[in-house]
Design a protein around this nucleic acid. Structure first.
Lengths: 194, 194
DNA sequence: GTCTATAAGAGGATAGAC
DNA sequence: GTCTATCCTCTTATAGAC
């Protein structure tokens, strides 16, 4: 069963593994699932997983890459011409979709919690993810201040960090209480916007 | 070696176990440490740990209780007569002390990340912790609005949730980047206060 | 590519001696 | 209270057959 990457056909084993790995990472964290769990989901043996991902570190690194690509796709769908407030609303909506099933949080938020048990390569990848999103949000805040559509009480960089931290903490709390996400609250509280 | 609980003497084995358990939970999470790790730290065998904490669930539950008591002690040290802005500053400072060693995050924030792998009893305990702090913050926000010392753009409850989420996310990010905590940024961004 | 077999150790937990 | 001994399962990982 070899197939490098045809497109609109059934997913390859590697793709399935990566999909389930992402879900496990978002729900249970790095130390909360095993190759065995993964193997059961896909219907292969654990040794087959090692064929694609020799070590768990490789698996996580590829999972981050796939997750990052998916999220960037969402960001790319936000029209550059939109007012800043609307961009933030769409960002929050997108962030909420991650946790829509009530059991997931942001993959990189979870890895940030697990970070002390993970190899340095993972730390770097997660740092990159955080920095990218904080940068994206900071640019939107600058736009909003320029437009006069957003009210910000600190520097754009500091506010962006607070905003992203608020999003991460908020999805964790929502899942903890098994309640719908309230990302709009975060936007409203940080940027003074309905 | 039996000692129920004399006061200013060396800590009992149970106290040492609880101390190290708290630290492990804050750094590595529930699935990131074992009875073996704990035993090595205290210099006992794993079977001795089971004497005090029959199952890992018991250990975590008691660790939460001890942690909660410690944090409440800190809150009690905040003078009720203070202006709201100063209370928030002190709260943020206290929250930052948790992560002062650069490797810890809030014990209950960590457990919120691990929550899908934990027994229901733990979820309830962590929910209680979150709700208590959100409530405490909401009361301070109400005070601040009444005084006119704080600027809030949503309801006190919503703002308190956003604030607490921001704190949780912020300490995670600080540790991720191995940078000093920036909890004041969160306060400033959410409450428009220096 | 996927499997069987296996290693070598870590995981939580218990029984019973001291 | 603490230990030794033990259980049984899970964990990551490798070697080699098909």
């Amino acid at each position: 069963m070899n197939r490098t990457k045809t497109s609109p056909t059934t997913p390859t084993v590697k793709e399935q593994l990566l999909d389930h790995a992402q879900r496990f990472l978002m729900t249970r964290g790095y130390n909360g699932f095993s190759y065995r769990d993964l193997a059961e989901q896909v219907g292969v043996k654990t040794s087959s997983i090692h064929y694609y991902f020799p070590a768990k570190e490789d698996l996580v690194l590829e999972a981050i890459k796939a997750y990052d690509a998916l999220i960037k796709e969402g960001l790319a769908g936000i029209d550059e011409a939109l007012p800043a407030a609307q961009k933030l609303a769409l960002y929050a909506r997108g962030f909420g979709r991650i946790a829509a099933d009530g059991h997931r949080i942001c993959l990189c938020g979870m890895l940030a919690a697990d970070i002390e048990t993970l190899p340095e390569t993972v730390r770097v990848a997660v740092q990159r993810f955080f920095a990218y999103h904080e940068g994206w949000l900071a640019r939107v805040l600058v736009q909003g201040v320029t437009e006069g559509s957003l009210t910000v009480t600190s520097s754009p960089d500091a506010t962006a960090r607070a905003l992203f931290a608020g999003f991460q903490g908020s999805v964790m709390a929502s899942r903890l209480f098994q309640a719908p996400t309230r990302l709009e609250e975060v936007v409203a509280s940080v940027c003074g916007v309905a």
